[in-house]
Computed example of a mutant assay.
Amino acid sequence: MSDRILTGQIPDALKQSLSRLPVVLSEAMVERLLRCVHYEPVIGIMGKSGAGKSSLCNILFSPPPASVDAVRGCTRHVHRYHVIRGSRTLHIADFPGIAETPEPDRQYRRLYRAWAPNLDLIVWALKADERAWKDDLRCYRELLGTGAAPERFLFVLTQADKMEPCREWDNASHQPSPRQAENLRAKTELAATLFTTVYPVIAVSAVENYHLEQWAEALIKALPVSSSSAVFHHLNPELRTEYVQEIAREGFISVAGAIFDEAALVVQTSARLMYQLQRLRRRFLAIIRAVWHLLF
């Protein structure tokens, strides 16, 4: 898809708000905005095999990535899935199960170094009923040791319905019993402490639709603002709550503001021109807020 075709997708009101800028600047801004609008995010998924990674992805995104054939990645150890809606694509990199492959730990370090520049976020799935996460913890610490930033990781407690005493799960209301809820609270606090997480750890159940809205909020918050709106587009419609939408929209507005500010720096500014630029910036961002739903 050419930039010329993409430019036609920018609402006229938005282009008009930039018409007072030099043409070369307004065109550069439109091009950068379009690259953000059509950005294709890449989310990495880590955790042990059987931790419910596929189930979680299938319930979060639309269409479910498991309905798309897996494509082997650049190595034989990572699977890539493509979630396609219209002309937009979300990429998911499914890393091999921890502690279940014969390859030495350095293979994980090589994998992360190879993939890190292309990953917007890594979602790490921890089984709620797992008694020990020593393998997860060891691998995570090794990744941090190679330079991975903690804010690039979002931990999630999966299969909450299997938390003991699992027979007490309330199937009618799709909620844990009081004892299960207490155990889940303690387990999420333990995970947050052990992994020193930047973001809250939320217990979810894909099969029971438990806490999925809260976790969708956590996902959008953890993503870089440059990719949150693009990921929002791929969420299951039932998870696109007003709050999640607001998070994504405000993130994109902040990106648009940064683009405007960088363009304004190259303009020779007098006090009068600075005032005009500030007015233009406010109008520009107001229009971005109004047309965001048309862009995404």
Rank of each mutant, 00 (worst) to 15 (best):
residue 3 D to W: 01
residue 8 G to D: 11
residue 11 P to I: 09
residue 14 L to V: 07
residue 20 R to A: 14
residue 21 L to P: 03
residue 24 V to G: 05
residue 24 V to D: 15
residue 31 E to N: 03
residue 33 L to S: 09
residue 34 L to T: 04
residue 36 C to M: 11
residue 37 V to F: 00
residue 39 Y to W: 10
residue 41 P to Y: 02
residue 44 G to E: 04
residue 47 G to I: 00
residue 49 S to T: 15
residue 49 S to D: 05
residue 50 G to A: 10
residue 52 G to A: 09
residue 52 G to W: 03
residue 60 L to N: 01
residue 61 F to W: 05
residue 64 P to V: 08
residue 69 D to F: 09
residue 77 H to T: 07
residue 79 H to M: 13
residue 80 R to Q: 10
residue 81 Y to W: 10
residue 84 I to L: 12
residue 84 I to K: 14
residue 85 R to S: 15
residue 91 H to G: 03
residue 94 D to W: 05
residue 95 F to H: 00
residue 97 G to E: 04
residue 99 A to G: 08
residue 99 A to Y: 05
residue 100 E to W: 03
residue 102 P to Y: 11
residue 103 E to V: 14
residue 105 D to G: 12
residue 107 Q to M: 14
residue 108 Y to Q: 02
residue 112 Y to F: 15
residue 114 A to C: 10
residue 115 W to K: 01
residue 117 P to G: 09
residue 118 N to A: 12
residue 118 N to S: 13
residue 119 L to F: 10
residue 120 D to Q: 09
residue 123 V to E: 01
residue 126 L to M: 08
residue 128 A to S: 15
residue 130 E to R: 09
residue 131 R to P: 03
residue 132 A to F: 12
residue 134 K to Y: 07
residue 136 D to Y: 02
residue 138 R to A: 07
residue 139 C to I: 15
residue 139 C to W: 04
residue 140 Y to F: 11
residue 146 T to Q: 11
residue 151 E to G: 02
residue 152 R to G: 03
residue 153 F to H: 01
residue 153 F to S: 01
residue 158 T to A: 04
residue 160 A to D: 02
residue 164 E to I: 05
residue 167 R to E: 13
residue 167 R to G: 06
residue 169 W to I: 05
residue 171 N to P: 00
residue 172 A to R: 14
residue 173 S to R: 15
residue 175 Q to E: 07
residue 179 R to L: 11
residue 182 E to A: 15
residue 183 N to R: 13
residue 184 L to A: 08
residue 184 L to G: 07
residue 185 R to K: 12
residue 188 T to S: 12
residue 192 A to N: 04
residue 195 F to Q: 04
residue 195 F to H: 02
residue 196 T to A: 12
residue 199 Y to G: 05
residue 200 P to A: 06
residue 200 P to M: 05
residue 202 I to R: 10
residue 203 A to Y: 02
residue 204 V to Q: 01
residue 206 A to K: 00
residue 208 E to N: 11
residue 208 E to W: 07
residue 209 N to R: 14
residue 211 H to V: 02
residue 216 A to T: 07
residue 217 E to R: 07
residue 218 A to V: 06
residue 219 L to F: 07
residue 221 K to G: 02
residue 221 K to I: 08
residue 229 S to Y: 14
residue 231 V to I: 04
residue 232 F to Q: 04
residue 232 F to I: 04
residue 236 N to P: 03
residue 237 P to V: 11
residue 238 E to V: 09
residue 239 L to Q: 09
residue 243 Y to N: 12
residue 243 Y to G: 03
residue 243 Y to W: 09
residue 246 E to L: 12
residue 249 R to T: 14
residue 250 E to G: 02
residue 251 G to S: 06
residue 253 I to G: 06
residue 254 S to W: 01
residue 257 G to C: 08
residue 262 E to R: 15
residue 265 L to Q: 15
residue 266 V to A: 15
residue 268 Q to G: 04
residue 268 Q to R: 13
residue 268 Q to T: 13
residue 270 S to I: 07
residue 271 A to Y: 11
residue 271 A to V: 12
residue 274 M to W: 10
residue 274 M to R: 14
residue 276 Q to C: 02
residue 281 R to E: 10
residue 288 I to D: 02
residue 289 R to V: 01
residue 294 L to R: 14
residue 294 L to H: 13
residue 296 F to K: 00
